[in-house]
Nucleic acid binder design. Sequence first.
DNA 1: AAATATAATGCAACCAAGTTGCTTAATTAA
DNA 2: TTAATTAAGCAACTTGGTTGCATTATATTT
Lengths: 125, 125
Amino acid sequence: MGVTRQTKQVKTLLDIFNTENNAISVADLVKKLSGQMNKTTVYRILDRLMEDGIVHSFVGKNGLKWYAKCQGCSCDAHFDVHPHFQCKVCGEVSCLTSSFKIPEVKGYKVDAVNLLLVGTCSDCL
Amino acid sequence: MGVTRQTKQVKTLLDIFNTENNAISVADLVKKLSGQMNKTTVYRILDRLMEDGIVHSFVGKNGLKWYAKCQGCSCDAHFDVHPHFQCKVCGEVSCLTSSFKIPEVKGYKVDAVNLLLVGTCSDCL
DNA sequence: AAATATAATGCAACCAAGTTGCTTAATTAA
DNA sequence: TTAATTAAGCAACTTGGTTGCATTATATTT
Ligand SMILES: [Mn+2]
Ligand SMILES: [Mn+2]
Ligand SMILES: [Zn+2]
Ligand SMILES: [Zn+2]
């Protein structure tokens, strides 16, 4: 299990994910929380929250790690497989609700799919 | 235009991409070529080769940058839009020939798609 | 075959993201 | 309230990637 103690820092992180609709990069979190919390703490809490199925992570177009809140996941399995969208203009990253089928590739066994759409979001169009 | 002079270092890089079927991470290239070539040079040549449509780049599942040879691209446009596959066992990354249609998302303008399949390759099954 | 112009390399220093080991503090249970 | 132990802080480190500038090598001109 991931989080076992309800520390002030865990509450802070949970609050951020509960009020924020979009995904957040770890780098941004560390910056935003500098002074409140050590960056090592941020990384470790995110790890634990992911173990618990509270958040999920993925890699953005520049190789940075992003986190977003899960919808209906548990510590046993991450169910919400979905694409992500990254806006080239404002930089915002969001989870898309549209599902997609895992493509079959002959000779390969596909376990996970990372689908990142890059373009311009509705606000920036 | 990217490459204008046929230096020893450029030839070395081109030779690697012409003999290697799979994608190569920049980190691996820098390691493999250490002693032969400065890492700054590796990064800069890769940039130029990409400008010329000779190689293309993408981000692997751990956020590392990978390069692979293009098929039929020019300095004007990178045409070969395709998914990539990363094997969790041996770590190899390869370009998939299967094409896919760019998904439409209401309200968004999608310019590029990064599709990375993660699983087990035929050698490791 | 020099001389020239300048593209490209090497080097060192730097930056940013992420990790590790260990000490100290805070939460929870007894 | 004490004790057990999870979790936070801190500092040092690692790795991938970038930048500025001096030097070298390529291609072109004379
Ligand atoms: Mn998501
Ligand atoms: Mn490819
Ligand atoms: Zn936007
Ligand atoms: Zn494999």
